[in-house]
Nucleic acid binder design. Structure first.
Length: 546
RNA sequence: GCCCCUGUAGCGCAAUGGAUAGCGCAUCAGCCUCCGAAGCUGGUGGUACAGGUUCGACUCCUGUCAGGGGCACCA
């Protein structure tokens, strides 16, 4: 694969610093960056400023010395003709201006390869297990799960695009206390439907759907001690339908029950016991998680003999590694943040590198309806479900909205806004750009052979801006990888669409100059490829017309 | 009490420690005989507070204040 200009330039910069005897002074891994504003060039380095205080020289002077060395290294293979100018600007930034020819060449490649142009092999096929949603099968998916579903699915798409081998997994809590209570809830409703007077405890599942399950269970004569399992299966079917409607498909549904049935929990306990990380106290079995940075040791078997949630989870994560995954990503709700240390401790105790386990807390989405907060309570069965959001705003808006903020930030989701087909709704701004391009391409007079087009006719500021923005899609994908957060995708799509709309407004694509028309058609086709690739990753449709 | 997230323009949000802090809504003023005006251009208006680290802080650290979420031998 052809080396990226970023890497080539970074190498040249590094060599220059070495020759000047300065390289040791650079501590940060990154000293070459895409500046926020294009007037500061296409790539920028702050190396001189980092070094100035050590050298006790002015940053601009250091920058000038680096640039002098660097200038002799800009004609090596892959770089020749790519750099138009290197300037020392501001407090001591070294700014690199790439030539238009470089961007024309990139556009050609995009037109040739299509969306594949944006793929990379950074991941080198590393097996990644992305576990998300994992909601208990005790009710429909809530909005909190919906956000995790959108983030997880889109993150998986991005990582796949970057060459990782991603498995999407749903961990199914198909046994334990919650399932028992679920079964009891259904049992009571059956009695109630038969005319018996019942008392329905506060901690039981109050939702209307329990009646539906009760009716189904009665029809099939399900035994009382099998009601929990039956209800969980019934609800799981609903969850699966909801996720499919949302465009989220899992590769693996991992059963917690299967861990116990295979004796995996005992096996992992034996392993920890042998290493001396378990001890008995107050009739319970404890895991010495404090040895690995947790604030207190954790119970794994309660004094009544039953497991805590942590017990199967240790076995589960052991199994993730046993299945050959090198990178684990867990998306959890904010109610689990206290759980991070003990799970990382477990992984460390098993001899795995806790750094390979990435736990992302996906903050809650607060649902508004016409500016009013909608409160949620699973137990009372009064909450907005994923399905309701989908019915109300559609899949496109829902998926897009849920990743529009950083996963670590709270998200306000107003159903009324997401429903609107106006610019207030950002997903339409992007889709509109795509549809507009489709329309122009449809009206193009003749079929254009993109390989023959003279792109050097693209000289207007808006044309160059658009070309650069298209190219920057790669940076966006890398940013998503670095943060394990797909939200940068929405920012990029908005910026790319804006660059297109600005170009469109000032310059006519279909004109009398055939060569220029061809060049502009090629440009907007490349823009469309990038928008489509972004929308595909987000799992949002890309309409030809709206 | 302890932990996590968040305080940026009237509202909703951006800004890998970097250059003149950006965008949408709202509001005011403009732009369609011409490829889709679901668009574009311009105006108004902002970093909660107090210290610290740094050549440089919206960003990192400490404290204060405010909002949201969470604390278990529940899952």
């Amino acid at each position: 694969m052809k080396k990226d200009i970023y890497l080539l330039l970074a190498d040249s910069l590094k060599d220059s610093l070495k020759e000047l005897g300065l390289f040791a002074g650079i501590k940060e891994e990154l000293y070459l960056d895409v500046p926020s504003d294009m007037r500061y060039g296409d790539l920028s380095s702050n190396a001189a400023m980092k070094l100035a205080s050590v050298l006790k020289k002015s940053p601009r002077q250091v920058a000038a010395e680096i640039v002098e060395k660097l200038k002799t290294k800009l004609d090596k293979p892959g770089l020749e003709g790519c750099i138009k100018e290197v300037k020392v600007e501001g407090a001591g930034f070294i700014n690199f201006f790439l030539s238009n020819d470089y961007f024309y060449a990139q556009l050609k490649q995009i037109l040739e390869k299509g969306a594949d142009y944006f793929k990379s092999d950074i991941g080198k096929g590393l097996p990644v297990l992305l576990e998300f949603v994992s909601a208990n099968p005790t009710g429909s998916l809530s909005v909190a799960h919906a956000r995790q579903a959108a983030v997880g699915d889109i993150l998986a798409n991005v990582l796949t695009c970057l060459g990782y081998k991603v498995t999407r997994e749903y961990y199914l809590n198909d046994e334990g206390n919650q399932i028992n209570i679920l079964g009891k809830s259904v049992g009571l409703r059956i009695k109630e439907l038969a005319g018996e007077k019942i008392e329905f405890p506060e901690d039981h599942y109050q939702g209307e759907y329990i009646y539906d399950i009760a009716k189904a269970a009665k029809e099939r004569n399900i035994k009382a001690d099998e009601l929990g399992e039956f209800a969980a299966g019934y609800i799981l079917d609903i969850i699966k339908k909801e996720l499919t409607a949302f465009g989220v498909d899992f590769d693996v549904w991992y059963s917690q029950k299967s861990l116990r049935e295979k004796g995996r929990i005992e096996k992992v306990f034996a392993r920890l016991e042998k290493k001396g990380f378990l001890y008995k106290s107050d009739g319970a079995l404890w895991f010495k998680s404090t040895e690995f940075g947790d604030d207190k040791d954790r119970v794994v078997i309660k004094s009544d003999g039953s497991h805590t949630y942590l017990a199967p989870d240790i076995a589960y994560h052991e199994d993730k590694y046993k299945r050959g995954f090198k990178m684990l990503i867990n998306l959890w709700g904010p109610d689990h943040h206290g759980y991070i240390n003990r799970l990382k401790a477990s992984v460390a105790a098993l001899g795995e590198d806790p750094q390979s386990l990435h736990i992302l807390i996906v903050q809650l989405a607060t649902i508004f309806r016409a500016g009013k907060v909608v409160h949620m309570s699973t137990r009372r069965g009064q909450y907005i479900t994923l399905q309701e959001v989908l019915d109300e705003v559609g899949r496109d808006a829902a998926r897009y909205f849920f990743i529009m903020r950083k996963v670590s930030s709270h998200l306000d989701f107003d159903l009324e806004v997401a429903k609107k087909q106006t610019p207030e709704n950002p997903v339409f701004y992007v889709q509109y750009a795509h549809a507009r391009i489709s329309n122009i391409l449809k009206n193009a007079p003749v079929h254009i052979k993109y390989s023959d087009v003279d792109l050097s006719l693209l000289k207007e500021k808006e044309e160059i801006c658009l070309a650069k923005k298209i190219y920057q899609f790669r940076d966006t994908l890398n940013a998503c990888l670095k943060t394990l957060d797909p939200y940068a995708l929405t920012c990029y799509l908005a910026e790319l669409s804006e660059a297109f709309h600005k170009f469109y407004d000032l310059h006519r694509v279909l004109g009398t100059d055939n060569a220029l028309t061809a060049a502009r058609l090629a440009l907007i086709r490349a823009a469309q490829i990038a928008i489509a690739a972004g929308l595909d990753l987000a799992g949002v449709t890309r309409p030809e017309k709206m």
